[in-house]
Design a protein around this nucleic acid. Structure first.
Lengths: 362, 362
DNA sequence: GCACTTTGGCAACAGCGTTGCGAAAGTAGG
DNA sequence: CCTACTTTCGCAACGCTGTTGCCAAAGTGC
């Protein structure tokens, strides 16, 4: 609801309310939702909802889908989102692999692609590869209408707003590369959104029903985090938020690759390397507890290749630390869960494009 | 701009834009700001600004204040906020002392009160004391119009939304006390807002021109933090955010009063007790660096009685740690400053009431 | 004194959500 | 089957928002 300076006009008002209704339609899924329910949930009057939904039906974004049982009068007409009305491509660029998905408005994956990729092969080669995969996905599926945009998720620090990469660890040739503009130009002005891989996963989880505030901790070859505060991804002014791995939890501890000492990442991965998974989980839990205390978040989700090697050990290890903390503070304990990672980054990347349609992220 | 379910109507639109204009008027201060500047800054059309400011002048909240030099045509008329149009009382309840201020719309302190207080004397006695101070402040100053409300800041965990205290360390009789309702009833339905002391200071700093995202670290008898993210105070769903002091930076380190080991607070205060101020600053800096990395904030402000004993040592100590971190990441270093604390909590408490008028916090 | 520039209010306007009212589509009871 | 009632939901008129077109006001520069 914010423009350049925050001033809101009638157009902004309409998009806001429209996005709100679309979001409720999406959340309702195949079951659908009635106009009156929409009115109750949004706080708008039934008549306003009728006008908005009429516009959405005209545009093909919503449709009637049967009726509810009567409660003594005219039964409610159920509305649902028309998922095929729009699609987005999500791309996960990893060091040695490219994964891409085509998702409809609902977030349902309609098609997938997966190929080997050498990030070090240079910008031109990689961009060409991405463009051809996007092209394939866009045309292959029958009935695919307007491609809303392409979301790209990749590791390493970057500027989400301007879509410029800062560094990609191990691939200095990408320093300062304007990925968004370059890819958008290559695809013929299709909107492109770029973000960190952990943020993409966090966004995907948030859209997928994970409400409130939570942190997604990713333990793979490194340790990073995606933060969701009050339903939207927290990136910070320079998209640098989520530097979880280099949080110091052991003053003057063993040196880390980053140059500091006692970072969670270094301690955690060292424990994993020694085969002491429980100790790794305890270290991870300590970092998570610090985060929970600082931000007062509800849930901690853990994932990544290392976690998936022993999910139960990590979940219970982290939970143990958080429970001890909750006992001390007298507050409710933050929930801990592991989330399977297969393809989640690419799906989250697609949500980078889809979420704004529903007024989220932005 | 959000109602119960987030639906926005024309009334909400108007309040939003009005608050925006009021905020710019406040920020401009005595210097004032012209209609066209307001239009540029808000993104609204000049005519919309004219309508809004006309309404504000009618209500007595704004007034014309001279003219700018001409730039070749009709000179711009300068508008300014009328600070006397509204007042708020801010109360700082500390363990042994009550400080209160009466502030006008601008945040300027018009009157102060300071008395000894025994928090352990029971709710009735304390409430009576607060009510009489609020009464004095409200009536003493000539020309004081509508009292917009009373903001109360105090240590210890509490529920900002419902205005209920959880615990006040050392005073178990306050556990679960509904301070907001009780005080509001006592004052004759004057709106009351309750918050943690560190949040009040952070809000006061944010309103006082400290833009963007920053953390206020308060080192006194304990160590706490107030977080401002994107201009508004981050409290978390249970107002528990800012638990900076019990962040673990030394796994299995020395025991802390909270029951955990290696907390920043314990390490920091122990160093202070040993007279090793520089080491205390380094420990504080490590905690601050963790915070900067996690949230990607711009600035770290330090304050509190202990810091004020040697502000330069703490500022340079913290800065040293942050600079080392910035060198490693290649990012710009977060700024560090100390802020004098005298009366700041009570002033911030008044902002708990004033800030919503200008669309902040809320 | 005239031409020009810039500000800012008046009036008409389009578009938003709201209100009043009535048609549509069911249930419940005779 | 018909009638009465309940509930849903769209049409039309409305009030209010910010917007646009236009013009008076108030300066500067020649």
């Amino acid at each position: 609801m914010r423009g350049a300076g925050g001033g809101a006009n009638l157009l902004a008002l309409r998009s806001h309310n429209t996005a709100l209704v679309l979001d409720l339609l999406r959340t309702a899924g195949a079951e659908g939702i009635s106009r009156l329910e929409l009115a109750e949930r949004t706080g708008l009057t039934p008549q306003a909802v009728s006008k908005i939904t009429a516009r959405l039906r005209e545009e093909g974004l919503a449709a009637e889908a049967g009726r509810r049982a009567s409660t003594g009068g005219k039964p409610r007409t159920v509305l649902r989102l028309v998922p095929e009305a729009g699609h987005a491509v999500g791309v996960h660029l990893d060091r040695d692999e490219l994964r891409a998905v085509l998702a409809d408005l609902d977030g349902t994956v309609v098609a997938r692609r997966r190929t080997a990729l050498d990030l070090g092969a240079g910008a031109e080669a990689v961009l060409g590869r991405v463009a051809s995969v996007v092209g394939e996905l866009g045309t292959e599926v029958a009935g695919v209408q307007a491609l809303l945009g392409v979301g790209v998720a990749l590791p390493g620090p970057l500027d989400h707003r301007r879509g410029v990469l800062h560094r990609v660890t191990g691939f200095p040739e990408w320093d300062g590369f304007p990925l968004r503009e370059a890819l958008s130009a290559r695809l013929g002005s299709v909107p492109v959104v770029v973000d960190k891989d952990t943020n993409a996963v966090a966004l995907g989880l948030a859209v997928g029903g994970e409400g409130g505030s939570f942190a997604y901790l990713h333990l793979g070859t490194g340790l990073g985090a995606g933060l969701v505060i009050g339903g939207s991804v927290h990136r910070g002014p320079r998209t640098g938020a989520g530097e979880f791995g280099h949080q110091v939890v052991q003053l003057d501890g063993p040196p880390c690759g980053c140059g500091d000492r006692g970072c969670v990442e270094a301690l955690c991965l060292a424990a994993v390397a020694r085969g002491e998974t429980e100790e790794a989980a305890r270290v991870l839990g300590t970092g998570a507890a610090n985060l929970v205390g600082l931000l007062d978040i509800d849930r901690v989700l853990v994932g990544g290749r290392t976690v998936e090697g022993a999910p139960e050990v990590f979940v219970s290890g982290v939970r143990r630390v958080l429970e001890a903390r909750a006992r001390r503070t007298g507050e409710e304990c933050a929930a801990v869960r592991s989330v399977p990672g297969e393809g989640r980054v690419a799906e989250g990347a697609a949500q980078l494009v889809l979420a704004p349609v529903f007024g989220q992220d932005g």
